[in-house]
């Protein structure tokens, strides 16, 4: 086994060159390059973490905006609904009021007409009584030659009409 057989002759050279090579690796690569590479990795990890946080924040803001938008839409819809309902109820009330007023006017007119009718009827009746009484006076005078006074004729006509 040359590793053992040659050890006395070669150990110094082996150790010397190993220390030089390993020392170079340690100081140049391990101490010089490795921290830079690790710093790059750390910077990337941080960048990713901060980007993720920013994205999360942006999503939160978007959610908030959307919620506000929804709330406003909801509000506007409620306001529109209220306005239409108000308008509708106002229109209904107005219509009812006008119908009532029209009803009242019509009723008043009907009552007036009724009263006029009644007056006319009463006047006609009175005129009929008058005419009847005069006719009765004349008939009595012609038939019997008795002059009946107007009051008596009227009383007889009234009695006959009432019967």
């Amino acid at each position: 086994m040359p590793q053992i057989a040659q050890i006395a002759a070669t150990y110094a050279s082996q150790i010397f060159w190993l220390l030089i090579v390993f020392g170079l690796i340690y100081f140049v690569i391990g101490k010089g390059m490795l921290p830079k590479i690790e710093a790059t990795v750390d910077a990337r990890d941080q960048k990713i973490a901060s980007d993720l946080a920013a994205a999360e924040a942006a999503r939160g803001a978007a959610d908030e905006t959307e919620a506000a938008y929804r709330a406003r839409i909801e509000e506007a819809r409620a306001a529109a609904l209220k306005a239409t309902q108000d308008a509708k109820s106002a229109a209904t009330a107005e219509a009812e009021k006008r119908v009532k007023a029209a009803d009242e006017a019509l009723a008043a007119k009907a009552a007036e007409a009724d009263a006029a009718l009644k007056a006319a009827q009463a006047k006609a009746l009175a005129e009929i009584e008058n005419v009847a009484a005069e006719a009765a006076q004349e008939i009595v005078a012609k038939v019997s030659g008795i002059e009946v006074d107007k009051a008596a004729a009227e009383g007889a006509v009234k009695a006959a009409l009432a019967a």
Binding site: A9, T10, A12, S13, W17
Partner: peptide
Amino acid sequence: GHNIAFTNSA
């Protein structure tokens, strides 16, 4: 006194 020849190992 130690030989440090550049060998194939080195």
